[in-house]
Design a protein around this nucleic acid. Structure first.
Lengths: 215, 215
DNA sequence: CCTTTTTTGTTATTAAAATAACATATTTTT
DNA sequence: AAAAATATGTTATTTTAATAACAAAAAAGG
């Protein structure tokens, strides 16, 4: 029912690797190359491609030019990928100006905030008052939003976004919101990732789990 | 060989949920509660706890106060969790001032950058020149860093960090760096997450995969 | 004080994901 | 032109992870 998120993540990585290889002058790529680069087995690379009907040559690997083009279509890079940023505190403004987005064809259409002090309607990427968000989304046909608001506001904003044509959200608020059938939420929880790393380090040090009984 | 990252992520979520329940006046919690909140089965909740020797009462669920305390020890929250931010552009400075960190006991010890314009040695969380990073890490015993530098610098910084007592890194640069045996790298790739969402939306619209042959 | 209910802790089962294996097609080499 | 080598595409196997099932313990009710 739900498409494998992990497969798509790998396709995105394959594409990025190939883009870089192309820059180095390579024309063909082998499943072994991509496997090494992404850290999976060659058979998984071939299987991933197979799922989407991407084929190579029984000998001679894959033509990158062609493969990248097909991947881009599969990944929707032929369409304009417009997003909005909701919450223009430090993090939100950092994302509005993030040059990694245009580089991969993602365009920030606008930012939104409730604080009049941060509004800037005249900027190249305008920061508008939150009251204008619904009309803006409808008018521009925005489907994806990035949420960089304080935790308490996150859920209520999600609820109101569900009544618009927004279909997916990246949530930076430190609360794990859950996806539903036709509304995708991807949580990015930096503090959780850091806490996870601290655990892994501590565990690696040999402290292991606390409750080890003899068996 | 490698500890399950997914289990720890769930433990962190259980703890967060319980913290909130505690705020609402609850004293006990059942595996069903946590399962609902986190979106897994009750048996998985109990299994996760079981792995770490966390027990409840055969009837009456788990005492939250006690459980949270034990979880915090397992997750290393009894220790000081100091981190540094490498790269003090907009994103790095947003993280330095992020109040989500102190709230969960993570302390940003300093930021580092090569650009003299952003340095500020006198600030509560100082921004120091990158040349001072090695001494700082050693002196303060920093084990975790957040990398918010432009993509081209990321790998070389990782390489030099591997020669220090840093054991784990959160990488915001849009390049998937790989963990090794005793150096953990957790990539946070916002554009990749967004591209993934766009794919999911497009797929949900019925366009599906491009290469479907009859079979 | 015995019966019923509830919820844990653990084992068994199912489901999913990744790897390994191999037959087939295509070059290259001799 | 035949034999050897190579890398795909697909099937089989293994590994991993999650759910379901259930026996045992503890509380509640009559």
């Amino acid at each position: 029912m739900k498409t494998q998120s992990a497969v798509i993540e790998r396709l995105l990585k394959y594409r990025d690797v190939m883009q870089k290889m192309k820059g180095l002058g390579f024309v063909r790529v082998f499943s072994d190359n991509l496997a090494d680069a992404v850290g999976v087995s060659p058979s998984l690379v071939r299987k991933d491609f197979s799922i989407f009907g991407l084929t190579g040559n029984k000998r001679g690997g894959y033509q990158m030019e062609e493969l990248i083009a097909k991947l881009n279509i599969i990944l929707g890079k032929d369409r304009k990928q417009k997003i909005i940023i909701i919450g223009c505190g430090k993090m939100g403004r950092a994302l509005i100006n993030y040059n990694g987005f245009p580089r991969v064809g993602i365009r920030v259409a606008a930012g939104f905030d409730s604080d009049p002090a941060v509004l800037d309607e005249a900027a190249p990427i305008p920061i508008l008052h939150i009251s204008k968000i619904k009309d803006f989304i409808t008018e521009k046909g925005i489907q994806v939003a990035v949420l960089t608001v304080p935790e308490p506001s996150a859920q209520s904003i999600i609820d109101s976004l569900k009544k618009t044509c927004i279909k997916g959200v990246i949530n930076f608020a430190p609360v794990s919101l859950r996806s539903s059938e036709n509304f995708i939420i991807q949580n990015i929880n930096v503090e959780q990732e850091i806490e996870n790393i601290f655990y892994q380090i501590h565990f690696a040090d040999g402290a292991a789990s606390s409750g080890e009984e003899s068996k």
